[in-house]
Amino acid sequence: MIEVQNLTKNYGPVAAIKNVTFEVGKGEILGFLGPNGAGKTTTMRILTGYFPATSGNARVAGFDVFSQINEVRKRIGYLPENVPLYTDMSVKGYLSLAAQMKGLGGTAKSSAVDRVIEEVGLTHMKKRLIKKLSKGYRQRVGLAQSLVNNPEVLILDEPTVGLDPKQITDIRSLIKHLAGDRTVILSTHILPEVSMTCDKVTIINQGQVVVSDTLSNLTKRSSDFSEISVIVRDQGKDTASIIQSVNGVSEVNPSRTGIKDGTTKLDVSLPEDEDIRGAVAKAITSADIELLELSSRQVTLEEIFIRHITNEESGLHHADPDEQEDGLSETQKEEESE
């Protein structure tokens, strides 16, 4: 549905994005992740035809965003980051305007407006002036505006920024509900947002795609038993070196999260091709240390994100996605040996 190939955009001598490549299939929700200033908005603006790229290709809904931009514009809904609205208009008036701007007239317009007002839950607010609405409701108006032409593709730039926790949850579930069979690109720098709403993740940093994969592939390491965490009550014994001495253990790190009243938490990396959790447990108990917990550790999106960003900054980035995985574990090793 969306194909982006080697997209580059220069602002004068500065490259905002460099060779950005990714793909989103029909009906997928792509989380577009990156720190502020990474180039998320620039990429989205190119896809919506706000400005052209310096080089590269992009196709949205089967149309080229450079040569057939009007066809693209008819098929997308876009919500810019700062949610620009005509605040002097009423919700309904504004949405009618948006519908007409997108080429809907007459009954098609009125039914589209009524539909989106209901979809985003603005029915009791439709006569209000937009300037009297709270940020959360404005966000809904912005979403309604993007949906009014029943677009195949939704492009949402940080749709939850600046909202309170309740509103954030509301908007997120709304997005998930609205997605339906639409293709959605959702940019954010909030990681849980991605794990809650998205199927696929593209992480971008300093204008370059660092990693692009499905969420499950990213959060799951190659096997369930290669990353474990161990909690022991060791009364000052050196559990780390005991575990380290087990054949096959590659790394042991005291975890940064939670060491209290004589217990120690350790993150342990084990070989991926062989389940040696039993050996680790045996080694601990035979050293007369109380083993309280041994669990497989899910890598969180935060870790992936930080890992990739630091990876990038320390210059270990490789363009090849296969090599990226290597680069990733290298940094992780570095990080964990600290």
Partner: peptide, 13 residues
């Protein structure tokens, strides 16, 4: 100033 021009630029107008 208000940024509403961004939407105008991305509408089919």
């Amino acid at each position: 100033k208000e940024g509403t021009i961004e939407l105008l630029y991305t509408y089919p107008i």
